[in-house]
């Protein structure tokens, strides 16, 4: 199973980005192989529809879950119809490494 996490930087020490569409990096974490992939978000400075564009990019990688701090108004219905689970984390100052640790715990 693949899980996407929005990140502010390209290392496991960087913090969770609280925006979905305009986050700096997407981390695609594969729970089976344990591989992480950092993808820079090309829609970071987009004027509009950064959310739908990011959804398209993420779904092309066959992701099942997305962890972020915030989702825009139109994201939930699109992802609901694609059966992708949203996880909203409001805790400030949480790192990508910590989230991956938590996810490993959940999937044991």
């Amino acid at each position: 199973m693949k899980i996407a996490i929005t990140s502010t930087g390209n290392s496991p020490e960087s913090l969770l980005d609280h925006r979905f569409g305009r986050c700096a990096f997407f981390v695609v974490y594969d729970t089976e192989s344990g591989a992480t992939e950092f993808i820079p978000n090309p829609h970071k400075n987009a004027e509009d529809s950064a959310g739908p564009a990011s959804v398209q990019m993420i779904t092309s990688r066959k992701v099942n879950k997305i962890v972020s701090g915030e989702f825009g108004a139109k994201i939930k219905e699109t992802l609901d119809s694609m059966k992708i689970q949203l996880i909203v984390l409001r805790k400030p100052g949480i790192t990508i490494g910590r989230i991956i640790e938590m996810l490993n715990h959940a999937n044991k």
Partner: peptide, 10 residues
């Protein structure tokens, strides 16, 4: 426990 919100599309 981790104060997150999530939905259940299935």
């Amino acid at each position: 426990s981790c104060s997150c919100y999530f939905n259940n599309p299935e």
